[in-house]
Simulated assay, not measured.
Amino acid sequence: MVRHQCPHPYHQTQRRRLIEKTALFIVIVLLVLFFVLGRLSVKDVKQYQADNARLKESVVKLTKANKALVKRLDFIESSKVIDAQSQKDARKSLVKLHEELSDTKEQLAFYQRVVAPETLIKGLYIDSFDIRPLDEKGGYDYELVLAQGTSQKQVIKGQYTFSIVGDWQGEEKEFLLEDLSIEGLKSGNFSFRYYELLTGEIKLPIGFIPKTVSMIINRSKKGSKPMQEQWLWREVVSG
């Protein structure tokens, strides 16, 4: 039987030195590799930080631009609202101006009829008669304007009354002023030199459908004939 013998001491020394050199080489290679990887990692971190800084700067710029656009949009919308309101106010003012102008023209025409020599109307006449509905259902107020030409310098006196004819409960019915007047008037009095505005309130029966209005004016002067005038209901009712 042959026993295994250990290598010669010289060979053992050479093998140990080879192992030491190999281990040292491996350590150096690993150190170099770690150094390179570390440098690359540092470069990646710095690049990331730089990119992140640029992104933050872009976000700030975009945020400012967005705020500016929002303010501009709000200004534009506000301008539109202001313009629309201005146009609305202007239209209202224009309508009001037309109404005032129309009223002024009517008043001017009235005074011309009463005062102007070239448009004199002799004697007593009805300048206008208007009926306007009130808030209360069936309630109305009326305005009667009587006048006489300026050639008539004496005070004129008398009474007026009117009646309304229409359908009520399936039949034609006439209601006198005393039936309709809130104040219970049978007739109204007038006394003037040039003109007079006479007003009052009436209330129509529920279900009554008016069709015509008949006015009678009696002067107090003896021998004077009654003045009569008739209108369709739609001609005298306004509003």
Rank of each mutant, 00 (worst) to 15 (best):
M1H: 10
V2G: 08
H4C: 06
P7N: 09
H8T: 06
H8L: 01
Y10A: 06
Q14K: 13
R15M: 07
R16K: 14
I19R: 13
L24D: 06
L24M: 07
F25R: 12
I28T: 07
V29Q: 10
L30T: 12
L31D: 02
F34H: 06
F35S: 13
V36C: 08
G38A: 01
V45L: 13
V45S: 06
A50G: 00
D51W: 04
N52W: 02
A53H: 04
E57H: 08
S58W: 01
V59S: 02
V60W: 00
T63F: 00
K64C: 02
K64M: 06
A65N: 11
K67R: 14
A68L: 08
A68Y: 02
A68G: 01
R72T: 14
F75K: 15
I76V: 15
E77H: 09
E77A: 14
V81I: 15
V81F: 03
Q85M: 11
K88I: 08
L94W: 08
K96V: 03
K96C: 01
K96M: 09
E100P: 05
E106Q: 11
Q107K: 15
F110K: 13
Q112I: 04
Q112L: 07
A116T: 10
A116R: 10
P117K: 05
E118L: 10
L120D: 11
K122R: 14
G123R: 05
G123Y: 01
L124K: 09
Y125C: 08
Y125H: 13
Y125V: 11
L134Y: 00
D135N: 13
E136N: 08
K137N: 07
K137D: 07
G139S: 15
D141F: 12
D141L: 10
V145Q: 04
Q148F: 05
T150Q: 09
K153Y: 01
K153M: 09
V155L: 08
K157L: 05
Q159G: 03
T161I: 03
T161N: 12
S163V: 05
V165D: 02
D167F: 05
W168Y: 14
E171H: 09
E174I: 07
E174S: 07
E178Y: 03
E178W: 02
L180C: 03
E183M: 03
L185R: 15
N189Q: 12
F192L: 07
F192S: 06
Y194Q: 12
L197A: 05
K203M: 06
P205K: 02
G207T: 07
T212V: 13
T212H: 03
M215T: 07
I216F: 00
N218I: 13
R219V: 09
S220W: 00
K222S: 12
G223N: 11
S224I: 07
P226H: 01
M227E: 07
Q228V: 15
E229S: 12
E229H: 15
Q230H: 04
W231P: 13
L232A: 08
E235M: 01
E235I: 00
E235Y: 00
V236G: 10
V236P: 12
S238E: 09
S238Y: 08
G239C: 09
